[in-house]
Amino acid sequence: MKILNDNDLIVIDGVSHTFNTNSGSLPVLDRLSLSVPENGFSAIVGPSGCGKSTVTRLVAGLLKPDEGSVWFQGEKVTSPRSTVGMAFQNPVLLEWRSIIKNVLLPLEIVPNDLSASDRESRANDLLKLVGLSGFEDKRPSELSGGMRQRASLCRALVHRPEVLILDEPFGALDAFTREDLWLTMHRLREEEPFTGVLITHDLREAIFLADQVIVLSGRPATVQYNQSMPQQGPRSLDQLYKPEANEMLNILREQIRIARKGEEPAA
């Protein structure tokens, strides 16, 4: 599967990767190819341990593939680039900094010509957008899990990255907080132009947030199924409770089942 499309921001082309561990070599990706269109939002789902996180590290340039290549805006990715923002399940905020100072961190590293007050107003705008106004000077330890994750999202976006990489960002949150954050994600998408790559275990999260859901096969992973969502861009929570959404969930669940079957070794 070779992807040639002017519209694609990220192209992963025939990537294979193997980790060398103490207990031998562990192939994680096998000729994986996929593409994410500019300003699109792709969710990658698959059995646990199938190499989803490896994909994010490849896109961020943190990892060089053994075989194949990763392209970003038609350029080969060989090292980290500051046009990426990342958020993980663990919000990894710096406990010794206030919330706003946490959000400002990328601007201290990525070269930019913003003045101190410009940076701060940029951070404040983002915090306002995710509903954290008034918490700028609090320490991360004073915030709830959902609020920390909101701050982590602000930090990932403050330097206006072209790609936002989310590695199970809402996995540790309770169901209601998670739905709130899904809505926040859509709000952010409306206000901030970015291309999203979401790794998740939650199929409902995938169909609610993404324009395209990619199911990876079991390890070593390759693309098993690629589903385009009928509705692109922001949407409302009600749609998640419509029959169409259920149909979609069933299709994806079936795909995950197949993926896990292929992966299951003789137990």
């Binding site: 590290r57 961020a60 340039g61 943190l62 090292s79 980290p80 680039r81 500051s82 990426v84 923002g85 990342m86 993980f88 663990n90 990894v92 961190l105 990328p106 590293i109 990525v110 930090r155 330097h159 990489i165």
Partner: peptide, 13 residues
């Protein structure tokens, strides 16, 4: 935690 390193490394630090 490796995530701390990844966040900064992905920015080119």
């Amino acid at each position: 935690e490796p995530e701390y390193r990844d966040i900064l490394r992905s920015l080119g630090a």
